[in-house]
Amino acid sequence: MSDKTGVITKIQRELFYVSVGNEVYPSKAKGNFRNKKITPVVGDKVDIHIENGLGFILNIHPRSVLLHRPEVSNVDKCFVLSSIKSPNINLMLLDKFLIMIEKNNLDCVIVFNKCDLLTEDEMQSYSDIYRNIGYKVIFNSNQNTDVNNKLLNEFKNHISCVIGPSGAGKSSTLKKLFPNEDFVSGKISDKTQRGKQTTRHIEIKRVDEDTYVLDTPGFSSFDLSFLDDKSEIKKNFIEFKANSDKCKFNNCDHINEPKCEIKKLVEKGVISKSRYDNYLEIVEEYEKFRRY
């Protein structure tokens, strides 16, 4: 019997797999966590008590970051992978992801997958929306024989979380970048244009000495329960934050207020109309969510 400190690297079938050095201990959470309404998540640093090879989680260390959907802690970089075709891109979902990432002050890379299916004009149009407001955008195709070294280098020396919708090619991309790791991949159904198989559990993998990667389940919807207040929506649209000090009102919501700088920039084409329209829908969704 002994007590050790490690990191939860995988959760599956109500077991928490805790990595301690070169050993991994399947562990259970003590009942007092349920009483406190605290759930251990992948990435948590924890203290465990070990009996006969089975660990019992005693304590969860303070988290630097806690992401919602997927619930992971202590990451410092987030990759949002999305296809533009097969399945078609969902900009609303992408913009919700970006709100969550900004709220947690994470470094972010947007990866548009399956670029072999795109024209140059299509790539440019989506690139412009996000590069023009400061996001790093990388186009990737897993049909290419060469590894995308530009993308690979972005993972170096980070604890990274990879998120995105079903069918975006997250696991296939990671398997190509890190061939020695067992990332799960699935095929796209022609009928539904969604993944036939997707990652079914969350797991962090140590791909080299200072590089960790979390592949996460794909999904097609994303709620706003990670937000504490409606104002967090406008605060985490980075192009709004950069220009809102020019609005007439300090607390401008950029919806019905007069002399709103954000609406002016949308009319001029400086701020993407798709981003602004998604902002309006997200605000409306949040108000309905809080009402019920």
Results as ranks from 00 to 15, higher is better:
Met1Glu: 04
Thr5Gly: 07
Leu15Gly: 01
Val20Ser: 04
Val20Gln: 06
Val20Phe: 07
Asn22Arg: 02
Glu23Ala: 12
Ala29Val: 06
Ile38Thr: 14
Ile38Glu: 12
Asp44Pro: 10
Val46Phe: 08
Asp47Asn: 12
Ile50Tyr: 00
Leu54Ala: 14
Phe56Ile: 15
Phe56Gly: 13
Ile60Asn: 15
Leu67Pro: 03
His68Ile: 01
Val72Leu: 03
Ser73Gln: 11
Lys85His: 06
Asn88His: 07
Leu94Tyr: 01
Asp95Arg: 04
Phe97Gly: 09
Met100Ser: 15
Asn113Phe: 03
Lys114Ala: 00
Lys114Phe: 00
Leu117Tyr: 05
Glu120Pro: 00
Met123Ala: 08
Tyr130Met: 13
Arg131Gln: 13
Asn132Lys: 12
Ile138Asn: 11
Phe139Ile: 03
Ser141Val: 04
Asn144Leu: 13
Asn144Pro: 04
Glu154Ser: 15
Glu154Asn: 13
Ile159Gln: 15
Val162Ala: 06
Pro165Trp: 00
Ser166Phe: 04
Ser172Leu: 03
Thr173Met: 15
Leu174Asn: 11
Phe178Gly: 14
Ile188Phe: 07
Gly195Trp: 04
Gln197Asn: 15
Thr199His: 10
Glu203Pro: 05
Ile204Lys: 14
Phe222Met: 14
Phe222Tyr: 13
Ser225Pro: 05
Asp228Val: 05
Lys235Ser: 13
Ala242Leu: 08
Asp245Gln: 10
Cys247Ile: 11
Asn250Lys: 14
Cys252Gly: 09
Lys264His: 07
Val266Cys: 11
Lys268Val: 08
Ser274Asp: 13
Glu281Asn: 13
Val283Ser: 09
Glu285Cys: 05
Phe289Asp: 12
